[in-house]
Each structure stands twice: as C-alpha cells, then as structure tokens.
C-alpha cells in the first residue's frame, strides 16, 4: 500500500456514443470544446496525417475518437504544443488530421506525434506514437524504442503518400499489431 497517496480513478470504455460528449457537432449539436485543431497561427510545414484503425478481423473502427498532441515546428511543448481531436468517418472509418510537422521535443531524438484512440471495446484508451519515415534511422536509435523488435518499431512509422501527406494505420491485433505505450 502506498501511504498518503490516492488511487487513480480507473478508466472505462468511451462506448459507442462518445460523439455526444466530445464532438457534438457530429450529431448536429453546436460544438462545445473550442474547435479542436492546430492553432491557426501555428507556424511550420503543413502536413496531413490520415489512416484507419483496424480491429482483429481487419474491419475498420467507424466509431473511434482520436486525439493528437505534439510539439510545434520548433520542438516546443506546453503552451506551444498542438492538440487536435477527430472522429473516424462514420462510413469508412478513416481519420484525418491537418497539422504542422513537429520539431523534436527531445534533444537529438526523432520527432513524433502522440496519438490516443478511444472507442467501444477499448477499456483504457490506447496511446501510440506516429513517427515519420524520413527519420527511420533515428527511430531505430531512439532510447524509448530500442528494446522493440524492428518489426514492432516499424508499426510506429507512417507511410508517405505524397509530399507532406502521411498514412498511419493502426492495427489493434494481429501479426502487425501496433505498439501501444504505457506512459
């Protein structure tokens, strides 16, 4: 037992109706949270990250809610960090973030975007990292990732579709199950 400490409130699934509370505009209500997305004034190279979250049978999650949190283009976090939230498309399951390319927030380490996934059937939200293919060698040397098998590390690297346009699919199970973090 820890003395003088409180116990963390347990997580429960966001359930299938997460949109009511976190993205009310998606069901025809006025948005509540200040419009999630990178600050309009955020400087840097504009990039798009899109992808799909797949379940163990290869079906896309059409009900997922996703959030990103990243450094700005200069690698600054805290008040300069960038947050965004989006919903998987109700028909296709595709998600899409328009943001800026993050700078490295850890000296000498590759930049990444933290990605959280919330959905029915996920009891504790999943936390993963989106790395960029231009930095594959640095990713291999990242002290946080060195202990991973190379194939597992590869699940954390986005694919470039076009200049500034990346695809990052998430696999909840299976041979190429994405690495999820306890942070």
């Amino acid at each position: 037992m820890m003395i003088g400490k409180l116990q963390e409130t347990p997580s429960q699934t966001a359930g299938p109706y997460v949109h009511i509370g976190t993205a009310p505009q998606s069901i025809g209500r006025p948005p509540l949270t200040g419009q999630p997305g990178p600050r309009a004034e955020a400087e840097g190279e504009r990039i798009i990250i899109e992808g799909t979250v797949f379940d163990g049978a290869g079906a896309p999650l059409r009900d997922a809610m996703l959030e990103i949190w990243q450094a700005d283009s200069a690698g600054r976090v805290g008040a300069e960090g960038l947050f965004a939230r989006c919903l998987a498309d109700f028909d296709t399951g595709r998600y899409r973030f328009e943001t800026v390319r993050p700078g490295p927030h850890r000296e000498g380490q590759p930049a990444h975007v933290a990605l959280l996934i919330f959905a029915r059937g996920i009891n504790l939200h999943l936390h993963t990292r989106i790395h960029f293919p231009e930095e594959r060698e640095r990713v291999a040397a990242d002290p946080d990732l060195r202990r991973l098998e190379p194939e597992a590390r590869e699940t954390l690297i986005a694919t470039q579709e076009a200049a500034g346009h990346y695809r990052f699919d998430v696999h909840l199970q299976g041979a190429n199950e994405t690495v999820f973090f306890d942070i």
């Binding site: 450094a71 059937g121 690495v179």
Partner: peptide
C-alpha cells in the same frame, strides 16, 4: 464484454518514461 474480443491489443503495453511532451498538455 464482447467488443473487447477483436479490439483489445493482445501484446503488453510498452512502458517508457514520461517526456516533456506527456508531462504537458
């Protein structure tokens, strides 16, 4: 809880120390 059967990751989480990114929000 049937929805977890195909949606729960089967591998253990990868534990790392919090960096300045996760310590801010």
């Amino acid at each position: 809880y049937k929805s977890t059967v195909l949606r729960a990751p089967l591998r253990p989480l990868h534990a790392v120390e919090q960096s300045a990114l996760e310590r801010s929000g």
